[in-house]
Simulated scan of single mutants.
Amino acid sequence: MKGPLFYSKILLFGEYGIIKDSKGLSIPYNFFKGALKSKNKDSEAARKSNASLRAFAEYLKDLQQKDQELVTFDLEALNKDVADGMYFDSSIPQGYGVGSSGALVAAVYDKYAIEKITVLENLTREKLLKLKAIFGKMESFFHGKSSGLDPLNSYLSLPILINSQDNIESTSIPSQNLDGKGAVFLLDSGSTGETAPMVHLFMEQMKHEGFRAMLKDQFIKHTDACVEDFINGNVKSLFGNLKQLSHVVLDNFKPMIPVEFHKLWKQGIDTNDYYLKLCGSGGGGYILGFTEDINKAKKALKGYNLEVVYNF
């Protein structure tokens, strides 16, 4: 048995903001992928994954009992496959903000959900929201609380535009210019980050009026502008808004940025060689970078591992 492939994702814009109805834009990233397998199941990684799937199957049984109208699974088949040693064979790094648990959730839904919503259907907003709700409940097993966007992106393998929490749609983004100097890149922080503690930290900050005002008047304002600019291909305006967004994140989300990157973050804003932002919840994993000249950025970030994901 070799299941279909599910890819990682990159939330280009909207981290934290989408909790409070900012716009967001998420794209599939095909460099990393995963699939459910039952061959070669004797490795340490396969055994670890199988144990996690076993616990996940129990969680899904409880979820189904609580809310049969939302989703039902072929639990008998799932439990049999798990007992036979099934695991999720994945190249998606965990704790890096590129959707490792999202791809797993999408794979399990695809294989075991009864009366599943398929990618081939006419995906109305209602269907997208139902999928997002199902995936949010499923992925909560891994994160404590999930928007459901990561699995949705992985399942559909399409860019997703988030207008607000109850208004999402699949979208198209400008075709890449592979000869272009502008780029979106991933910067490896060299350490993993955990989503749950970072989200908890954010929710604690949200109790303060000043933080809430900053989020609404600055963070969400610049995030929304970046989403509009990116989708419409307004590169010049995009980089102006990115600079503002990078500044707001450095000033107000410092705990989510690994300490050793604070200086590098500011250097980008000061020189305009690149702008950094959080990739997912932060705290480690990947940092997302944008540059109008990838060669300049590579020079400025010499010694760091850069992975280009999109060219302007």
Score class of each variant (00 low, 15 high):
residue 1 M to C: 10
residue 3 G to C: 11
residue 9 K to N: 10
residue 12 L to V: 11
residue 13 F to P: 06
residue 13 F to T: 03
residue 15 E to G: 06
residue 19 I to M: 14
residue 30 N to R: 15
residue 31 F to G: 12
residue 35 A to Q: 14
residue 36 L to M: 13
residue 36 L to T: 10
residue 36 L to K: 04
residue 37 K to D: 13
residue 38 S to W: 14
residue 40 N to W: 11
residue 43 S to G: 12
residue 44 E to Q: 12
residue 49 S to M: 11
residue 51 A to Q: 15
residue 54 R to Q: 14
residue 57 A to F: 04
residue 60 L to M: 00
residue 64 Q to C: 04
residue 65 Q to K: 15
residue 65 Q to F: 11
residue 69 E to L: 08
residue 70 L to R: 06
residue 71 V to L: 03
residue 73 F to G: 03
residue 74 D to M: 03
residue 74 D to G: 01
residue 78 L to S: 03
residue 79 N to T: 03
residue 81 D to G: 07
residue 81 D to C: 08
residue 82 V to S: 09
residue 89 D to N: 12
residue 89 D to M: 01
residue 90 S to H: 10
residue 91 S to R: 05
residue 95 G to R: 07
residue 95 G to Q: 04
residue 95 G to D: 07
residue 96 Y to E: 02
residue 100 S to N: 00
residue 109 Y to T: 08
residue 110 D to T: 02
residue 110 D to I: 00
residue 111 K to E: 11
residue 115 E to Q: 10
residue 117 I to E: 00
residue 117 I to W: 05
residue 119 V to G: 01
residue 122 N to W: 01
residue 124 T to E: 12
residue 125 R to W: 03
residue 126 E to K: 15
residue 130 K to S: 01
residue 130 K to V: 08
residue 133 A to I: 01
residue 140 S to Y: 01
residue 140 S to N: 09
residue 142 F to C: 03
residue 147 S to H: 02
residue 147 S to F: 02
residue 148 G to M: 01
residue 150 D to I: 07
residue 154 S to F: 07
residue 154 S to K: 02
residue 156 L to P: 02
residue 157 S to Q: 08
residue 159 P to D: 10
residue 165 Q to P: 03
residue 167 N to Q: 14
residue 168 I to W: 04
residue 168 I to M: 10
residue 169 E to W: 00
residue 169 E to T: 15
residue 171 T to G: 04
residue 173 I to L: 10
residue 178 L to P: 07
residue 180 G to E: 14
residue 182 G to D: 13
residue 186 L to T: 04
residue 187 L to I: 11
residue 187 L to T: 05
residue 188 D to C: 08
residue 189 S to C: 13
residue 189 S to N: 12
residue 192 T to K: 14
residue 195 T to P: 10
residue 195 T to D: 02
residue 199 V to T: 09
residue 199 V to K: 11
residue 201 L to Q: 09
residue 205 Q to D: 07
residue 206 M to I: 02
residue 207 K to N: 11
residue 208 H to R: 12
residue 211 F to E: 02
residue 215 L to M: 15
residue 215 L to C: 12
residue 216 K to D: 09
residue 216 K to S: 08
residue 217 D to G: 02
residue 218 Q to F: 07
residue 224 D to F: 02
residue 224 D to E: 01
residue 226 C to W: 06
residue 227 V to R: 10
residue 227 V to L: 10
residue 229 D to S: 14
residue 229 D to G: 03
residue 229 D to E: 12
residue 232 N to Q: 14
residue 237 S to N: 12
residue 239 F to C: 13
residue 241 N to A: 07
residue 242 L to D: 01
residue 242 L to Y: 09
residue 246 S to P: 10
residue 249 V to T: 13
residue 250 L to Q: 08
residue 252 N to I: 11
residue 252 N to L: 07
residue 253 F to E: 06
residue 254 K to L: 08
residue 257 I to K: 00
residue 257 I to N: 07
residue 259 V to M: 14
residue 265 W to Q: 03
residue 265 W to M: 02
residue 269 I to S: 00
residue 271 T to C: 04
residue 273 D to S: 13
residue 275 Y to D: 06
residue 275 Y to Q: 13
residue 276 L to Y: 05
residue 277 K to F: 08
residue 280 G to F: 00
residue 280 G to P: 05
residue 280 G to H: 00
residue 281 S to D: 08
residue 281 S to P: 07
residue 287 I to D: 07
residue 287 I to H: 04
residue 288 L to M: 13
residue 289 G to F: 08
residue 294 I to F: 13
residue 295 N to V: 12
residue 295 N to D: 15
residue 297 A to M: 09
residue 303 G to Y: 03
residue 304 Y to M: 13
residue 306 L to A: 07
residue 307 E to I: 14
residue 310 Y to I: 03
residue 311 N to D: 05
